[in-house]
Amino acid sequence: MTGGKRRGWWRRNAWPLAACAVLLPAVFGIIGWAEWDDYFSGHESRPITAQPNASIDYAGASWGPAEIVELPPPEGYAPPAGSRILEVTVAVDPADDDPIGCLPPTLHEMGGAERQWDERTYELGEGYEPGEWNSCAGSGTEPFAIVVPFVVPDDAVGPFALHIVVAERVPEYLRLPLGP
């Protein structure tokens, strides 16, 4: 039981030990990476980001420019205390002959708490004049505009981005920065 004897064992097994030192982390690393990659490839994780006030190609269509305005409360609708209504309009041009399909867009806070809002077309009631489309479902092959209202708390001041997901293109999704 001397130090010399012990060093002898280490030295004798130097190559296997070195192999372990490389392979063990590699095994966990590869398995972990594969699991996370599997997860991320099933979720919206890769943004295709447009320049502000510009259009961009995604899923075989041209998207944007997108603009955001604050909307006065529509007639007959009392917005919840401490809130305001933001309306986003996105021009869409399906370049291919195939109509595109997308879910209603969501509004995202860039920075801060990174909150995300669902659109509220139906919440705003009869007094709200909705755009023709609040998603791409059934919109055909002609250029059209998606118009979606959001109800956000007063402390949400932006900047915002609009996210649009075409299911077949996940994990890629479209990210349209809005306004200032």
């Binding site: 919840p80 109800v151 708390p153 402390d155 949400a156």
Partner: peptide, 8 residues
């Protein structure tokens, strides 16, 4: 029911 952010 659907919930809203910071607006109960």
């Amino acid at each position: 029911s659907q919930l809203a952010i910071d607006l109960p």
